[in-house]
Design a protein around this nucleic acid. Structure first.
Ligand SMILES: [Zn+2]
Ligand SMILES: [Zn+2]
Length: 648
DNA sequence: AGCACGCCGACT
DNA sequence: GTCGGCGTGCTC
């Protein structure tokens, strides 16, 4: 009889011990029983260290997939870093939880590809990375939009393919993967597969098996693609590495960009990060030579320059309260020339506030401490946090039933634009994005110039690549600056610079118009002058002085529950005991009521830790677990988020 | 997570 | 007297 240390795909569980008469290799996927349920698990190793009682048999062995030791180490280190048990990690993120016994082969496509030629700058970056393809190093390619990062990636991928290596290439959003697929497949020697959470079950199974056997060599996808177990992975690419979408907001709260670097280290292979607007963390790592900084300064079409106008909406002639005459004229002009316009607004729905005409009270969600958003087409008020909606509005304070709305969302912008320029408008935001096919059809309608104006939220600031966009308009993003987040300036600059990059990609000159009520906000000047390096260095100095990342690790502990007194009580208990054991170099902030104090009738408090030494994080986690267990009440819960991105 | 155990209200 | 509600505990 053999005994095995097994990771099971069940939340909260550490490794368990199972037995079998078979000699099973490490990395095998097995079926085991946990509390009368059968679940999948991974054989980590044989073991002799166990309690001989109550050890169950391994029920089944799956031999169509074998995980490498690198992969096992990766999952284990990820779990340790984010302080979640291996069972939680498996259950939440490893695709082995989907594995099916009987898998049919999908037919392989016929491929033809053409080589790309690189300019001198691209060539030297390519050579720098290509000469050390067989060891771990993190590269940061910092290249303006349209400087041709993708061509460098393609040449590197082809080099890896020549040596029978595999490549994982991740992007922050599913929408971007389809667009990239078409660009990549024509340049690569082998088949490219798209992997993310929305692909069909059949495709998923096929990719899992073929990438694992080595029959498939290139995967592009969103976060989750990083966890497709390979056979001989030799290169990881993280494009748009600055993007906060790489952070998974759900347990175990990992950041796929950081995990890509960890995985590369374990595999001893190069990791290539790319961005036109690197994250402060990566930029800093490059400045200390932890990463190798590689700059691309030349645009592929060097004659294009985008002019930027900041419009002060307080003193400007307007067509409507959110549309200046200048922006209107700009759109009109473009339309006459048959050119295209992008319009960015960072709110969904029609308007963000519904206000009582009698007493001025803002309509709030009954379950959450947020205001309801008005959707005109459906004539409802909706809460973005719990999804509930109200058809009939009644003021909670005076009982009044007469309301007016304030604030501008994408639906309202669409409505006005459609009146001004009938039949020329498309809208793209989270409410419209119900499926990847829907997004594709909107984008192709725009790409084929059947409509010339695209109104949307943040999604339209990423990745769009169309030659006839000559006007980039920002309707309003002012509310971004008020977020309680130490990254606001960084994120605003990144977002605006990325949005700016949607235009001037080919020969035609482009103009950006930014409407704002805060024209003096330094962020606009940074975008206008394009002096990112100076801005980055200023931010780094500030972070250093204030003790924020990349100089410390933040940990967010959010406690929530239905009874506010219990939530406060437990928060205080946790905070007190942490304070007692906190190492001298570390700090605790809070506990404080979270900026959104209630969601789905659960009151929320948070504690922020600033931690210097990574190994201390696990100690603090253990302490939180202990205290919470001791004082927990009813449905009160907590989340422990290492390197948080969301402070709401 | 999800299943078992256990202790209170309402129903044959 | 027992059926089932879901609050708490535990998983090799
Ligand atoms: Zn709500
Ligand atoms: Zn009222």
């Amino acid at each position: 009889m053999f005994y095995y240390k097994v990771a099971v795909a069940t939340p909260y569980l550490q490794f368990l011990t199972y037995k079998s008469i078979n000699d099973i290799p490490d990395g095998t996927i097995v079926k085991v029983e946990v509390k009368k349920r059968t679940v999948l698990g991974i054989i980590y190793s044989k073991t002799t260290d166990f309690d001989p009682l109550d050890i169950k048999e391994i029920l089944d062995i799956y031999d169509n997939i074998r995980l490498t030791n690198y992969y096992l180490t990766f999952l284990e280190k990820l779990s340790n870093y984010y302080t979640y048990p291996i069972g939680t990690t498996l259950h939440k993120i490893s695709p082995i939880r989907f594995i099916d016994l009987d898998i049919k082969k999908v037919k392989e496509p016929n491929l033809s590809y053409h080589t790309v030629s690189l300019n001198d700058e691209q060539q030297s970056i390519y050579e720098e990375i290509a000469k050390k393809l067989d060891k771990f190093y993190t590269y940061l390619i910092y290249g303006v939009t349209g400087s041709g990062k993708t061509e460098i990636y393609c040449k590197l991928i082809n080099d890896v393919l020549d040596r029978d290596g595999q490549v994982i290439y991740i992007l922050p959003e599913i929408t971007l993967t389809t667009q990239l697929f078409h660009r990549l497949q024509i340049r690569l020697k082998k088949e490219v597969a798209v992997y993310h959470s929305k692909i069909t079950e059949k495709k998923r199974q096929d990719i899992l098996v073929r990438f694992n056997s080595g029959a498939l060599s290139v995967i592009i996808g969103a976060r989750s693609a990083l966890f497709v177990p390979g056979k001989n992975i030799k290169l990881i690419i993280v494009d748009e590495e600055h993007d906060p979408s790489f952070k998974q907001e759900d347990t175990p709260h990992y950041n796929a960009r950081d995990m890509a670097v960890l995985y590369g280290k374990i595999l001893n292979i190069p990791v290539v990060l790319g961005s036109a607007t690197p994250s402060i963390e990566s930029y800093y790592n490059a400045s200390t030579n932890k990463y190798k900084l590689l700059r691309l300064n030349q645009k592929f079409h060097p004659n294009t320059e985008t002019s930027i106008d900041i419009i002060d909406m307080k003193n400007e002639e307007v067509i409507d309260d959110f549309l200046s005459k200048k922006l209107y004229d700009g759109i009109y002009e473009r339309l006459n020339r048959g050119e295209q316009t992008l319009l960015l607004i960072n709110k969904k729905g029609y308007s963000s506030y519904i206000i009582c005409r009698y007493c001025g009270t803002i309509l709030q969600c009954n379950n959450c401490s947020v205001s309801m958003t008005y959707y005109k087409s459906d004539k409802v008020a909706r809460c973005h946090y719990c999804g509930t909606y109200q058809h009939k509005f009644r003021c909670g304070k005076c009982g009044g039933e007469d309301f007016f709305t304030v604030g501008t969302g994408s639906e309202k912008v669409f409505e006005l634009m459609d009146q001004l320029f009938p039949g020329e408008i498309l809208r793209l935001d989270q409410d419209v994005v119900t499926s990847t096919r829907r997004v594709e059809s909107i984008l192709s309608e725009f790409g084929e110039k059947r409509k010339k104006i695209l109104v949307g939220t943040q999604i339209i600031s990423k990745g769009l690549n169309y030659p006839d966009i000559t006007l980039i308009g920002v309707i309003n993003i002012d509310n971004l600056f008020t977020l309680p987040d130490f990254r606001v300036e960084e994120r605003s600059v990144q977002m605006l610079t990325q949005f700016l990059g949607r235009g001037g990609r080919f020969e035609k000159p482009c103009q950006m118009i930014i409407q704002t009520y805060n024209p003096d906000n330094p962020v606009f000047n940074v975008v206008k002058t394009g002096q990112l390096d100076r801005f980055y260095n200023d931010i780094i100095e500030k972070r250093k002085a204030m003790g924020y990342p990349p100089f410390v690790h933040l940990v967010k502990i959010l406690i929530d529950g239905q009874r506010i007194d219990k939530v406060m009580d437990i928060s205080n208990k946790i905070s007190e005991s942490l304070k007692h054991t906190l190492s001298k170099e570390d700090k605790l902030l809070g506990p404080a009521i979270a900026p959104i104090s209630k969601i789905k009738n659960r009151h929320r408090m948070q504690i922020i830790l600033k931690v210097k030494t990574v190994s201390n994080i696990a100690k603090y986690r253990k302490m939180v677990d202990d205290i919470f267990y001791k004082y927990k009440h009813g449905n009160t819960k907590f989340i422990f988020d290492v390197d948080p991105y969301n402070f709401m």
